[in-house]
Design a protein around this nucleic acid. Structure first.
Lengths: 190, 190
DNA sequence: CGATCCATGTAATCTGTTACATGATTTT
DNA sequence: AAAATCATGTAACAGATTACATGGATCG
């Protein structure tokens, strides 16, 4: 159950409304954990009911009557507890690899086009991350907090770098193979 | 909806019972798509109802009366259709990175131990993949099918390689930093 | 003949996704 | 005054997880 803890973390960093939280799930947090606004609203409602977060009273209510949340002491304690939790590592789910495996059985079809799209996506994101790294972490002394943040960013950079390279290989392979032969229904008993 | 297509692929490779399918989701398929036996049974029931797979009549029913499934022509057609489907790439969810980000706000606690476990896991899996690569793909001419399978394996190898290296870095960083200072509640508005 | 494993399933719950609803506030 | 945007939500559903149930087969 990481969503609530991602929200607690985000709110500790800076108190936010549901919508601005959602926006952050499209950006920095969303690089490794996504959530739609419905998930955010549902979860903030629960968290407020459990008194792990609370709405900050507002002097001047803005339009749409937004509620700004902040984390309570109980919320902070819960987050600290959770950080110490251990969870067995589990490999992610990757639909593209499922597709490629299917393609190895029934033939690739237009899968290469898909891969080109993915390649573009990952390569763009890679550039994005590098820009953030240059902007926020280059040429300065990093304290412990900044070093942890940099580590997270480096994970992102490394992953995008990997996928970009792998997709490039895969595209080359599939483009070459497609013309010469057709993939037959050979079996690999997993 | 990749589960059903992962199942179709697996059954095309080799007809299986629910339980042996589940086992394959612990091994080869499970390297990039996991499923519990409940998911498998539910999905095979649906697939059979939709006539995308069918139970193979058995001469000698074994214990527990297992049903062996195979893919119908409709099933194969559906899989081919799905391989051609396009789906926007979405970055995976990674609970460990959420934890690390939380740790950058409330302090790392015993997170390093977690990371050591993960490091061990990924390094073991890396070795596993390399063994498979050496056993199944070294020193032989690869046809199109084998080359696609090898591509999938290379994705696994590359990812495990990356995580192993990154975790090593992260562990070093966290071990160094932990003694000197405590992470304070500095903010990074995402 | 009790323990263990094979094989399939039900039920409840949680998490995530998609579609739609509502009202208020800017903008044009 | 209409259109677009802000902000929060409801409802329905799909997908995933966890706990438990059942009955037969084999093993010691």
């Amino acid at each position: 159950m990481s969503l609530r803890h991602a929200i607690l973390t985000a709110l500790l960093e800076v108190p936010s409304t549901g919508l601005s939280l959602t926006r952050r799930f499209d950006r920095s947090i969303g690089y490794f954990w996504q959530a739609t606004h419905q998930q955010v609203y549902r979860e903030t409602a629960k968290l407020e009911a459990e008194a792990l977060i609370r709405a900050v009273p507002q002097a001047t209510p803005a339009r749409g009557n937004p509620k700004t949340y902040e984390v309570t002491d109980e919320g902070r304690a819960e987050l600290i507890r959770w950080v110490g939790d251990s969870e067995p590592p589990k490999p992610g789910r990757d639909a593209l690899l499922v597709r490629l495996r299917a393609a190895s059985v029934v033939g690739p079809g237009p899968l290469v086009d898909q891969m080109r799209e993915h390649h573009e996506f990952h390569s763009a994101r890679h550039a994005e991350y590098l820009a953030v790294a240059a902007r926020d972490f280059a040429d300065r002394e990093l304290d412990d907090v900044a070093r942890m943040q940099y580590l997270i960013l480096q994970a992102g950079i490394g992953l995008e770098e990997f996928w970009t390279a792998w997709l490039q290989d895969a595209i080359t392979e599939l483009s070459q193979g497609a013309g010469s032969r057709k993939a037959a229904g050979a079996a690999t008993a997993g």
